[in-house]
Amino acid sequence: MRVNRILLSVALVVVALVIQVSVLARLHLPGAVPDLLLLTVLGLALVYGHVGGALVGFGAGLLADLAPPADHAAGRYALVLCVIGYLAGLAKPDNGRLRSATGPMVVVVGAAIGTTLLYAGVGALVGDTAARHVGLPSLLFTASLYDLLLAPFVVPGIMALARRAENDPLADTNSAAKSPDISSGWLSSGTGLRIGGQRNALRMKTARARMARAGRIKGVKRL
């Protein structure tokens, strides 16, 4: 990943985790907790693609596993967000622009359901049965509802920041200033090819004109 991607991803993930732990987790909403960290990973994955989404998801999940008051095994949420970031990155549009909000909303709902199921499944493998006591259907419904309501205020902003970091004009200027010889070399070689092609074309036209004149003179002599 590029340096600007890493810096932006780290900053957004840290801010999202702090808001989620200090604000959203203390709202005591029924069912699940709005997952701002998941929405941040989704927004970055829709811009960076499946590889970037997997890397950002793993880093964000690992940070959430280590941040207090985490009460589960380290690496559990990192695995979940790594898989979700990879799958969400597969939905990245080819031109980088979303035609409508339907696609991202479907991605958010699918990610909320998939995250809850994967988290509960991994917990069952390690002996954590908390999801059974809370009720998995209610967790799926509330997680999808909260994330869907929060997504329009988070995902577009995350994607806009990621696109702006990708199209950094300062980086383009620096890269262009570092390689003036390469561009000039390509230009000079291209110009030389064009001049050589024009000279060859003029020579061919001159030869054809001479042959045509010779044919006409011979024809007059035969008459």
Rank of each mutant, 00 (worst) to 15 (best):
A120T: 06
A120P: 01
A143S: 15
G114E: 09
A131N: 08
L170N: 03
L150D: 00
L136K: 06
A111R: 01
L98I: 07
V107C: 09
P180D: 11
Y146F: 05
G57E: 07
G192Y: 15
D65E: 04
I84Q: 04
G110M: 06
G103D: 10
L117R: 03
T142F: 03
T191D: 14
Y146L: 06
S188Y: 14
P169L: 11
T115Y: 03
L149S: 01
R76V: 06
L150M: 03
A171Q: 06
V106S: 04
A124P: 07
P152L: 12
S175G: 14
A88L: 05
D181W: 11
T142V: 07
R99I: 14
A88W: 03
G85V: 02
A120R: 02
A160F: 07
A130W: 12
L66S: 00
V122F: 14
S144N: 07
T142G: 04
A162F: 04
G57A: 06
A177E: 15
A70Y: 13
H72I: 07
P169N: 07
N167S: 14
S100K: 10
N167A: 15
E166H: 10
L148E: 02
L87E: 14
S189R: 13
V56E: 07
S138F: 14
L55A: 15
G59Y: 06
L118V: 13
Y119Q: 04
G103P: 01
A171L: 10
R163T: 14
T191S: 08
L55V: 15
T116M: 04
N174T: 05
D94G: 11
R99Q: 12
S100H: 15
G89W: 12
R132M: 11
S184P: 02
S175V: 12
G57Q: 09
D71H: 12
R97G: 00
S138E: 14
V126L: 08
A91Q: 13
S189L: 10
G57C: 05
L187H: 12
A111P: 01
Y77H: 09
G157T: 07
S138P: 01
V109Y: 04
A143L: 07
A91N: 09
S144A: 15
L150E: 00
A131W: 14
T173W: 08
A73C: 05
P180V: 11
G121D: 06
D94P: 00
A88V: 15
M105T: 09
P180S: 14
V134D: 06
L62Q: 10
L150G: 00
G127I: 07
A151S: 12
L63H: 01
G75F: 00
V80N: 00
T115R: 04
V109R: 08
M105I: 09
V134A: 08
L118K: 10
G190A: 15
R97H: 09
Y86K: 06
V109P: 05
V154G: 01
G59S: 13
Y119A: 08
G110S: 03
A160V: 08
G57H: 05
A131K: 08
L161A: 15
A101G: 05
R163D: 09
M159P: 01
R97L: 13
P137S: 13
V109G: 03
D71K: 11
R164F: 08
A171D: 02
